[in-house]
Design a protein around this nucleic acid. Sequence first.
RNA 1: UGCCCCGUGGUGUAAUUGGCAACACGUCUGACUCUGGAUCAGAAGUCUCCAGGUUCGAGUCCUGGCGGGGCAGCCA
Length: 562
Amino acid sequence: MDNANNEKQKNFITEIIDEHLASGKYNKVITRFPPEPNGYLHIGHSKSIALNFGLADDYGGKCNLRFDDTNPSKEDIEYVDSIKRDIKWLGFDWEEREYYASDYFDTLYEYAVKLINKGKAYIDSSTMDEIKNMRGTPTEPGIESPYRSRSVAENLEMFQNMKLGKYTDGEHVLRAKIDMSSPNMNLRYPILYRIRHDSHHRTGSKWCIYPMYDWAHGQSDSIEGITHSVCTLEFENHRPLYDWFIRELEIHHPQQIEFARLNLNYTVMSKRKLLQLVQEKYVSGWDDPRMPTISALRRRGYTPESIRNFAERVGVAKRDSITDVALLEYSIREDLNKRAQRVMAVLNPIKLTITNLPDDYFEELNAVNNPEDETMGSRKVPFSNSLYIEREDFQEVPHKKFHRLSPGNEVRLRYAYIIKCEDIIKDPKTGEITELLCTYDAETKSGSGKSDKKVKGTIHWVSAKHAINAEVRLYDRLFTEEDPLGDKEKDFTEFINPESLNVIRECKLEPFLKNAEPGSRFQFERLGYFCVDIKDSSDDNLVFNRTVTLRDTWAKIQKKNN
RNA sequence: UGCCCCGUGGUGUAAUUGGCAACACGUCUGACUCUGGAUCAGAAGUCUCCAGGUUCGAGUCCUGGCGGGGCAGCCA
């Protein structure tokens, strides 16, 4: 429904696909998104998800969801559930094509037997250290293993015994015989199977040997008939290995294409680092709204559309780069501006009394729900002589460019009247301003057209008697550094922004918000976009998360002045 | 001192495949405004990492440098 970027951008991948289709190498496009269920999906994954599902969609093909679940000790059903939920929420549909690498364990085993029969794979009984030492380094070739010349019969029998559980963890591995002196380390007798007496979240105790990712991934793609196997740059050096497997096995050959993963400044993206933030309690969980995970962004108030638009705008290329979070923020503002209901909320209240209005004065004023969308209609906002306004909207000694409320000055109350500050009440001890006394101009009612008085500023407010309380959580970027991983001396956790979360209680909201549904999004006028927290909000304790602030030119002016 | 990939405004991507470098974000002006929002109009900013070469013509092709990233898990 949105017009942000309906025209899909061409990129080097679509170029390759176009060539394949033109040459007849493939006659359709089948892609897949292949997560390992060992963590939550993050914004970086959404780039890959949007790419793979988008490609399939653009070319009238299909995109599978496949869990690469080859390592039982790191994976968990909790993660597969969260991954499915997140992809669905983003708006992509794998229909009935929910696959698991573990579904192919039998086939993979047969493939391994085939390789053994061809004399291209053998059982190695070296220890982990020995294997490591014999592998060589990027600049020195490896050394042949003493086990490399075992007979086919012996290899077959031992491989079967591995499967049967006759050995202990680590006792033997199955390796492919490729090239021990290849400059590409991946070809130096890669390990295909390892013994792991571990229960798998899907296959239970059926297996005690598990295929390595390198052995499982390409063949899984092949089994599914994937045409374009899109992955990130670090697998570029693995492509010759995958191609070798496919050739030796004589099975369908997908084309792997590598692209640069998404990086964002002021955050970290690796699952390991994110897990660390969770485990060491720097954040409240995977869905802490400061996290770059999909579940966190959802909780923070991001929309799926905004994330998809963001992914589209970021583009696809082969050079690794760091995208500015400002682009993400732009994407959500753009989306929410069009659809978010406007309301008034005072986060840091100061009392304001209108002295030329009686204590029992009551009036309902008309407020537009969304100036960007007339169909959203309007609502009534209660008005009285006792209000709250934002403390920051008053300056006793105003800055020359400050055009809000100050002594003797006039300002408009949004949807209401123009008021003038007549007096200030201060706490005699602390000197802190506790109340503002103002008069209002009855002729200036919003929309009445009775007065053509102009004021420089308009501020939001809420009627004290009618206001409801809420807790508001203000979020800022999680790290103070653009590149939290950039300092080799310091751990990235040292750069966590101490002000990344600021909880304010007793914020004053207009009563319209009383029954706001968890997850619903609003614009608090002049402040930003907020949504009702889906986890912690309740009828007696409304909790709002700030998704993102509004663009704030005043903040820029202040910054410049400092 | 091995192999693979990549080098275009501040950032991310384009450039009809060899034809006078464009779009978005960001930044800065101005207009408008009952959100210092949104919107609108405009500006600055890239001689395409460097040096050679091919060509009438190179960001695109070739060679050599330089710079960045990846590769030595029984992780993915």
